[in-house]
Simulated scan of single mutants.
Amino acid sequence: MTRRAQAESLWSRPKTEVLLTRSAFVSGAQAELADYFDYYNHQRRHATLGYECPRTFEHQTLLPTAQLCLT
């Protein structure tokens, strides 16, 4: 099983068992997961990005390169 398949399998459980169920707990769980994903994708430092957060890495590395390609 590949890492992507493992990740998909892992996240299929919260999606089906928690997030798709309607209750007061679910709305709290959805908010917590949204906060975590926001932190993980925008603030958490990633080793593969030279210990930069994705937002900083994108602005410093990817956007200048993309702008050069457009000219």
Rank of each mutant, 00 (worst) to 15 (best):
L10Y: 08
L49D: 02
L62S: 01
T71F: 12
R13T: 14
T56M: 00
D35V: 01
N41L: 01
R44Y: 03
F25M: 02
L19H: 05
F25N: 08
A7K: 06
F57L: 02
C69L: 15
S27G: 02
E58C: 05
C69R: 13
G50S: 03
W11E: 08
L62E: 09
A5S: 15
P14T: 00
Y51L: 10
Y40T: 05
T21S: 08
G50Y: 02
Q43S: 10
S27P: 03
L33K: 00
A24I: 13
T71A: 14
P14A: 00
E8A: 12
A24C: 02
G28C: 08
D38H: 06
T61N: 09
T2R: 05
A34S: 08
V18I: 15
Q67D: 09
C53F: 04
Y40N: 00
F37K: 04
T2C: 13
E17I: 07
A7C: 10
Y51M: 14
L70R: 13
A29R: 07
A5K: 12
S23E: 04
R45C: 06
Y51K: 05
P64E: 03
E8M: 09
A66C: 09
H46T: 01
M1E: 10
T48G: 14
K15E: 15
R22G: 10
T65F: 11
R4S: 12
G28E: 14
R3H: 10
R22K: 15
H46S: 00
T2N: 14
H42G: 06
Y51T: 05
A47M: 11
P14N: 02
R44C: 00
Q60V: 09
D38W: 00
A7S: 10
S23L: 05
P54S: 01
P64T: 01
V26G: 03
T21W: 04
H46C: 04
W11L: 12
T16A: 14
S27Y: 07
E32F: 08
Q6H: 06
S27F: 00
F37M: 06
R4A: 15
E8W: 01
T21E: 13
Q30G: 11
L19D: 05
E8I: 11
T56I: 06
G28Y: 03
R55T: 06
Q67T: 00
F25K: 04
C53V: 03
C69M: 15
T71W: 12
L63I: 15
T16G: 13
C53G: 05
T61K: 08
Q67S: 07
L33D: 04
Q67K: 13
Q67L: 14
H42D: 11
Y36A: 04
L49A: 03
A24D: 15
E58D: 00
C69V: 13
M1N: 12
Y40L: 02
F25R: 06
F25Y: 11
S27T: 12
R55E: 11
Y40F: 04
Y39H: 06
A7E: 05
N41F: 03
L63D: 07
A29P: 00
T16E: 14
Q67F: 10
Q67R: 13
M1I: 13
C53A: 08
S12I: 06
L63A: 05
L19T: 05
E52M: 12
P54Q: 01
A31F: 07
R55V: 10
R55N: 04
R4Q: 15
R44K: 08
D35C: 07
R45N: 12
L68Q: 14
T16V: 07
A34P: 03
V18Y: 08
S23A: 06
